[in-house]
Simulated scan of single mutants.
Amino acid sequence: MGYLALDLSKTSTGWAAWSEGWEKPRYGHWVLGSDYTSRGGVFAKLHQNMMDLHTVICPIEYLFAEEPINPAQLQGGTTINTLRLASGLSAHAESFAHALGVRRFQEFNISSWRGDFIGKISSNEAKANARRAKKAGDQRASARGELKALTMERCRQLGLSPRKDDEGDAIGILTYGLLVSGITPPWLLEETLRAPLMGAAK
Protein backbone atom coordinates (compact mmCIF):
# COMPACT_ATOMS: atom_id res chain seq x y z
CA MET A 1 0.00 0.00 0.00
CA GLY A 2 1.21 3.49 -0.80
CA TYR A 3 0.90 6.44 1.57
CA LEU A 4 1.49 10.08 0.64
CA ALA A 5 1.59 13.16 2.89
CA LEU A 6 1.51 16.74 1.65
CA ASP A 7 2.42 20.08 3.22
CA LEU A 8 0.62 22.18 0.63
CA SER A 9 2.00 25.51 -0.56
CA LYS A 10 2.30 27.35 -3.85
CA THR A 11 5.97 28.19 -3.41
CA SER A 12 7.10 24.89 -1.86
CA THR A 13 4.84 21.89 -1.35
CA GLY A 14 6.58 19.29 0.78
CA TRP A 15 5.76 15.64 0.08
CA ALA A 16 6.67 12.38 1.77
CA ALA A 17 5.74 8.92 0.51
CA TRP A 18 6.03 5.44 1.98
CA SER A 19 5.09 1.99 0.75
CA GLU A 20 5.07 -1.30 2.63
CA GLY A 21 8.54 -2.83 2.56
CA TRP A 22 10.42 0.48 2.55
CA GLU A 23 12.68 1.14 5.55
CA LYS A 24 12.45 4.92 5.12
CA PRO A 25 10.12 7.34 3.38
CA ARG A 26 10.99 9.10 0.16
CA TYR A 27 10.49 12.85 0.25
CA GLY A 28 11.01 16.09 -1.62
CA HIS A 29 9.26 19.32 -2.53
CA TRP A 30 7.54 20.90 -5.53
CA VAL A 31 7.41 24.52 -6.67
CA LEU A 32 3.87 24.90 -7.98
CA GLY A 33 4.09 28.40 -9.35
CA SER A 34 5.57 31.88 -9.34
CA ASP A 35 4.10 35.33 -8.70
CA TYR A 36 2.70 35.19 -12.24
CA THR A 37 1.04 31.77 -12.03
CA SER A 38 -2.75 31.73 -11.80
CA ARG A 39 -4.52 29.72 -9.13
CA GLY A 40 -5.74 27.36 -11.84
CA GLY A 41 -2.18 26.89 -13.02
CA VAL A 42 -1.04 26.10 -9.48
CA PHE A 43 -3.78 23.48 -9.06
CA ALA A 44 -2.92 21.94 -12.44
CA LYS A 45 0.75 21.69 -11.44
CA LEU A 46 -0.21 19.96 -8.19
CA HIS A 47 -2.30 17.50 -10.20
CA GLN A 48 0.59 16.79 -12.59
CA ASN A 49 3.10 16.25 -9.78
CA MET A 50 0.78 13.97 -7.81
CA MET A 51 0.09 11.88 -10.90
CA ASP A 52 3.82 11.62 -11.65
CA LEU A 53 4.47 10.47 -8.08
CA HIS A 54 1.58 7.99 -8.28
CA THR A 55 2.87 6.40 -11.48
CA VAL A 56 6.63 6.59 -10.90
CA ILE A 57 7.33 6.32 -7.14
CA CYS A 58 4.40 4.43 -5.61
CA PRO A 59 0.65 4.05 -6.19
CA ILE A 60 -1.18 6.38 -3.80
CA GLU A 61 -3.77 4.54 -1.73
CA TYR A 62 -3.86 6.80 1.33
CA LEU A 63 -3.40 10.56 1.21
CA PHE A 64 -2.71 12.78 4.24
CA ALA A 65 -2.47 16.57 4.32
CA GLU A 66 -2.34 19.43 6.78
CA GLU A 67 -5.62 21.27 7.28
CA PRO A 68 -5.69 24.68 5.58
CA ILE A 69 -5.53 27.64 7.92
CA ASN A 70 -8.73 28.58 9.73
CA PRO A 71 -9.72 32.19 8.88
CA ALA A 72 -10.48 32.74 12.58
CA GLN A 73 -6.81 32.12 13.39
CA LEU A 74 -5.40 34.63 10.92
CA GLN A 75 -2.49 36.80 11.98
CA GLY A 76 -0.35 39.36 10.22
CA GLY A 77 -0.71 40.05 6.51
CA THR A 78 -2.48 36.93 5.26
CA THR A 79 -4.57 37.96 2.25
CA ILE A 80 -7.85 36.69 0.86
CA ASN A 81 -5.93 35.40 -2.16
CA THR A 82 -3.64 33.39 0.14
CA LEU A 83 -6.68 31.87 1.84
CA ARG A 84 -8.33 31.00 -1.48
CA LEU A 85 -5.11 29.41 -2.70
CA ALA A 86 -4.66 27.33 0.45
CA SER A 87 -8.28 26.15 0.41
CA GLY A 88 -8.06 25.46 -3.33
CA LEU A 89 -4.94 23.33 -2.96
CA SER A 90 -6.59 21.29 -0.23
CA ALA A 91 -9.79 20.88 -2.27
CA HIS A 92 -7.83 19.86 -5.36
CA ALA A 93 -5.86 17.24 -3.41
CA GLU A 94 -9.14 15.81 -2.09
CA SER A 95 -10.70 15.85 -5.56
CA PHE A 96 -7.61 14.12 -7.00
CA ALA A 97 -7.84 11.46 -4.30
CA HIS A 98 -11.50 10.83 -5.11
CA ALA A 99 -10.88 10.62 -8.86
CA LEU A 100 -7.97 8.24 -8.32
CA GLY A 101 -9.99 5.99 -6.02
CA VAL A 102 -7.74 6.60 -3.02
CA ARG A 103 -8.97 4.58 -0.04
CA ARG A 104 -8.79 7.49 2.39
CA PHE A 105 -8.06 11.21 2.28
CA GLN A 106 -7.46 12.69 5.71
CA GLU A 107 -6.43 16.15 6.91
CA PHE A 108 -4.75 16.79 10.25
CA ASN A 109 -4.65 19.92 12.36
CA ILE A 110 -1.12 21.30 12.58
CA SER A 111 -1.13 21.25 16.39
CA SER A 112 -2.12 17.57 16.40
CA TRP A 113 0.49 16.18 14.05
CA ARG A 114 3.35 18.48 15.09
CA GLY A 115 2.72 18.08 18.81
CA ASP A 116 2.81 14.32 18.39
CA PHE A 117 5.89 14.37 16.14
CA ILE A 118 8.16 16.69 18.14
CA GLY A 119 6.55 16.06 21.53
CA LYS A 120 3.94 18.09 23.38
CA ILE A 121 6.50 19.56 25.81
CA SER A 122 8.76 20.91 23.05
CA SER A 123 5.76 22.25 21.14
CA ASN A 124 4.30 24.00 24.19
CA GLU A 125 7.69 25.50 25.14
CA ALA A 126 8.14 26.97 21.67
CA LYS A 127 4.67 28.54 21.83
CA ALA A 128 5.36 29.87 25.34
CA ASN A 129 8.60 31.47 24.10
CA ALA A 130 6.64 33.32 21.42
CA ARG A 131 4.03 34.49 23.92
CA ARG A 132 6.74 35.81 26.24
CA ALA A 133 8.40 37.66 23.36
CA LYS A 134 5.08 39.28 22.42
CA LYS A 135 4.44 40.26 26.01
CA ALA A 136 7.90 41.87 26.06
CA GLY A 137 6.94 44.05 23.11
CA ASP A 138 7.85 42.05 19.99
CA GLN A 139 4.48 42.01 18.23
CA ARG A 140 5.92 40.05 15.31
CA ALA A 141 7.06 37.19 17.52
CA SER A 142 5.90 33.78 16.34
CA ALA A 143 6.57 30.18 17.29
CA ARG A 144 6.53 29.13 13.62
CA GLY A 145 10.29 29.27 13.00
CA GLU A 146 11.17 27.42 16.19
CA LEU A 147 8.52 24.76 15.60
CA LYS A 148 9.80 24.15 12.08
CA ALA A 149 13.38 23.91 13.40
CA LEU A 150 12.27 21.37 16.00
CA THR A 151 10.52 19.35 13.28
CA MET A 152 13.72 19.30 11.21
CA GLU A 153 15.72 18.24 14.27
CA ARG A 154 13.25 15.43 14.96
CA CYS A 155 13.67 14.20 11.38
CA ARG A 156 17.44 14.11 11.85
CA GLN A 157 16.99 12.14 15.09
CA LEU A 158 15.17 9.52 13.04
CA GLY A 159 17.96 9.30 10.47
CA LEU A 160 16.19 11.39 7.82
CA SER A 161 17.70 14.38 6.03
CA PRO A 162 15.05 16.73 4.60
CA ARG A 163 16.54 19.64 2.67
CA LYS A 164 13.75 22.10 3.53
CA ASP A 165 11.34 22.50 6.40
CA ASP A 166 8.45 21.79 4.01
CA GLU A 167 9.89 18.32 3.47
CA GLY A 168 10.31 17.95 7.23
CA ASP A 169 6.68 18.91 7.79
CA ALA A 170 5.56 16.34 5.19
CA ILE A 171 7.57 13.65 7.00
CA GLY A 172 5.90 14.64 10.27
CA ILE A 173 2.43 14.50 8.68
CA LEU A 174 3.21 11.11 7.11
CA THR A 175 4.51 9.70 10.40
CA TYR A 176 1.41 10.91 12.27
CA GLY A 177 -0.92 9.62 9.55
CA LEU A 178 0.63 6.17 9.67
CA LEU A 179 0.39 6.03 13.47
CA VAL A 180 -3.26 7.12 13.35
CA SER A 181 -3.81 4.32 10.82
CA GLY A 182 -2.40 1.77 13.27
CA ILE A 183 0.97 1.43 11.53
CA THR A 184 4.29 2.04 13.30
CA PRO A 185 6.65 3.46 10.64
CA PRO A 186 9.94 1.56 10.32
CA TRP A 187 11.90 4.73 11.14
CA LEU A 188 10.32 4.67 14.62
CA LEU A 189 10.79 0.97 15.35
CA GLU A 190 14.35 1.14 16.69
CA GLU A 191 13.70 4.18 18.85
CA THR A 192 13.93 3.25 22.52
CA LEU A 193 14.19 6.62 24.25
CA ARG A 194 13.66 9.96 22.56
CA ALA A 195 16.51 12.39 23.19
CA PRO A 196 15.32 15.87 24.15
CA LEU A 197 15.08 18.35 21.30
CA MET A 198 17.36 21.32 21.81
CA GLY A 199 15.58 24.11 19.93
CA ALA A 200 12.91 24.95 22.52
CA ALA A 201 15.50 25.26 25.27
CA LYS A 202 16.89 28.50 23.87
Rank of each mutant, 00 (worst) to 15 (best):
K135N: 07
G40T: 01
L179M: 13
R132G: 00
L188C: 02
E67N: 13
S38G: 10
F43W: 07
T184S: 07
I121P: 00
G14I: 04
Y27I: 02
L147Y: 03
G119Y: 05
D165M: 09
S142W: 08
T175K: 03
D165V: 09
G137Q: 10
T82V: 01
K148P: 00
R144F: 08
T37C: 08
L197F: 06
S112R: 14
P59L: 11
L150Y: 02
H98S: 12
V102T: 11
H47E: 14
L150A: 13
A99K: 09
A195R: 12
Y27S: 13
Q48M: 12
G33I: 02
A93K: 06
R39A: 04
A200T: 08
F108N: 07
S161T: 12
G101W: 02
A126F: 02
S38V: 01
A97V: 08
F108G: 03
V102S: 03
H54I: 10
E94Q: 13
P196R: 11
S34D: 15
H92S: 05
S12R: 11
Y62W: 15
I171H: 01
E66L: 02
Q75E: 12
T151E: 06
R26V: 13
R84Y: 09
H29E: 15
A136S: 14
R104H: 14
N49Y: 12
K10E: 00
P68A: 08
L6I: 03
R163M: 11
K120G: 06
L174R: 02
P162T: 09
K120L: 12
G28N: 12
A44H: 07
A72F: 06
M51T: 15
F105N: 02
N124F: 05
A126D: 05
I60G: 03
S87Q: 11
T11F: 06
